[in-house]
């Protein structure tokens, strides 16, 4: 339908305007966050939100960057997030394949175990996992936190990938089997390429989750030199002081990598969210 034709009906036009209004309303929190971040705290507190800012400045971004020590923490975030992401996707694709494509005793039980672990309020695992990590000598190392993220995300990833893998037509796999392919080759050379959209989608979600983690970082790491960017941002909220513009700027800065990943993988993301929905 052309734009002109679309707006030829008055009802449709009204509906469209309503939708437009709702959409703008939806974006207000973003807009206000950005507006807040370019003002100074003083200006904001004294003159209220609807005053015109006396000056526009990126000073609070600089402040958040400096005080939050972002240049020290950001590399750590990647050092933690990327291996966790790769490992968890790799391992869950293995277990998902087994659960999706084989009949064996305990299949249901294992699926149930994976889902169950994903639903536990994870905060409560904090001290047991801390004890475990310490006992393994992994306390205050990146490996300790990578191992935990990898393990904890396995439940969700296995569950989604299993659902996706079940939608792959069995004939393709049968054909390969008849040709004498080993199961590992089938998994790697046939199943994985077919599952790639799902993996990419999961990667987006998992990146966001692991990158935004803070709780585990403070429990499993004690050195500032190892901590991810979320820990740096948390120190912006002091014991006594709450500087809204700096906190908002820091929060927006920390969102940048996830937004980039999101934009980059957006196409898969929408598909990914639907994994459980249409294929379940």
């Amino acid at each position: 339908m052309t734009t002109k034709k679309f707006f030829s009906s008055p009802w449709r036009t009204i509906g469209y305007l309503v939708l437009l209004a709702i959409t703008i309303l939806w974006l207000v929190p973003f807009i206000q966050a950005i507006l807040t971040s370019v003002r100074t705290n003083d200006d904001l507190m004294r003159r209220g939100f609807f005053s015109l800012p006396t000056e526009i400045s990126l000073q609070s971004y600089a402040e958040a960057w400096r005080r939050g020590g972002l240049e020290y923490y950001l590399p750590n975030s990647f050092i933690i997030t990327i291996p966790s992401l790769v490992l968890t996707l790799f391992l869950s694709s293995l277990s998902a394949y087994a659960l999706a494509r084989f009949r064996f005793r305990g299949n249901r039980l294992l699926l149930f175990t994976y889902i169950g672990g994903m639903l536990l309020p994870f905060q409560v695992l904090m001290l047991p996992v801390f004890r475990l990590t310490d006992a393994l000598g992994l306390y205050d190392t990146h490996w300790g936190i990578i191992a935990f993220h990898t393990a904890f995300q396995l439940g969700f990833c296995t569950f989604l990938l299993r659902n996706y893998m079940r939608t792959v037509p069995g004939e393709i796999l049968e054909a390969a089997r008849i040709d004498g392919c080993s199961e590992f080759r089938i998994w790697w050379q046939i199943m994985m390429p077919l599952t790639l959209p799902a993996v990419a989608a999961l990667a987006t979600l998992e990146f966001t989750w692991i990158f935004n983690d803070y709780l585990w970082a403070i429990v499993l790491l004690r050195s500032d030199t190892l901590k991810p960017v979320t820990a740096g941002l948390a120190t912006l909220q002091g014991q006594y002081v709450m500087d809204w513009t700096v906190i908002t700027s820091g929060a927006l800065l920390a969102t940048v990598p996830t937004v980039l990943v999101f934009i980059f993988l957006q196409r898969y993301f929408i598909e990914g969210l639907t994994l459980g929905a249409t294929k379940g």
Binding site: L94, G117, L125, P128, T150, F152, L154
Partner: peptide, 27 residues
């Protein structure tokens, strides 16, 4: 061929048992 699924499962499952299910029972 009956063993195959377990081969796929062994590594992820061990990690899951240690870091998630173990602490869960401990909880």
């Amino acid at each position: 061929s009956q063993l195959t699924p377990y081969l796929f499962l062994i590594l992820p499952l061990i990690i899951y048992l240690i870091w998630v299910i173990g602490p869960m029972f401990y909880t």
